[in-house]
Design a protein around this nucleic acid. Sequence first.
DNA 1: CCAATTATTTGTAAAATGCAACTAATTTAA
DNA 2: TTAAATTAGTTGCATTTTACAAATAATTGG
Lengths: 143, 143
Amino acid sequence: MSHENLRSLFQLVVRHYGLLNEQCCDQCCGQDVSVQQSHILFEVGRQHHPSMRDIANTLGVDITTFSRQVKSLINKGYITKTPHPDDQRIQILQLTEKGAQLEKDIDQYMNESLDQIFSQLNEDERQTVTYSIDLLNKAMRSV
Amino acid sequence: MSHENLRSLFQLVVRHYGLLNEQCCDQCCGQDVSVQQSHILFEVGRQHHPSMRDIANTLGVDITTFSRQVKSLINKGYITKTPHPDDQRIQILQLTEKGAQLEKDIDQYMNESLDQIFSQLNEDERQTVTYSIDLLNKAMRSV
DNA sequence: CCAATTATTTGTAAAATGCAACTAATTTAA
DNA sequence: TTAAATTAGTTGCATTTTACAAATAATTGG
């Protein structure tokens, strides 16, 4: 079976979403973090007391690259790294207040961008698309 | 309005689709092209006699980086660069036979991956999702 | 208590990135 | 018509990103 439309959508998302983030970094947070780093902020904010490996696995990036990205985000004051009380090997990541604020700004920018996409649709279409997004989310997560 | 699910799906797509491509390059074409380069092949194959700038703009990458990626793909024998007959500044890109074959292999791999996602859905859901994908494609392209 | 495992970091070398400056072809406008 | 401006693409260079190996450090299992 050919999934040209889905592949095309994904390609579009990969590029535009990356692009969006890049524009966002220029526009809303003055180039201070990269796209990759904005994904890290997003996940650290969303997960509960995640370790280095938790986030690296979720994002599907090499742990060594991730380690250096985290170092950079710590230097910029957006996240902190604290050894787990029960296992000193594990480093728990957390957004700083500054990091949480940045993630909030990025989130707002993203929502405005996604509003633009949704504003192209009528109410029925919006409902159908929203429902399908849930389905796709679940399907992708269970593969 | 908050689009947490859509943002989440996009994040997932950005990561997994990139990942997918990376796995694909390992598995189906022996690491010979990068993710970025596979996107170039995809677009060169899809557009009609595109120029350097056409593809770079579509992909949202810097033209200087793109220029070097193209050089690499030419060296590997996947694409060709021909001056436009009416304007010698413009270079027209085209897949070689080898490049078209590689893109076909990648496409097949992608379709199999997307089949896996779709196999999580029942027939009704599949139809709804397919319809929504069309809507989203159109909405995103018109923003 | 020592070997094996797990989490993370660093060494290093290759690749990707993007700004600035360049060449070359074409268009514009006096 | 011809010099200035514009456009397409390339290269120099410095920075960042990447990922494999190897190291360190903490923990677990036998």
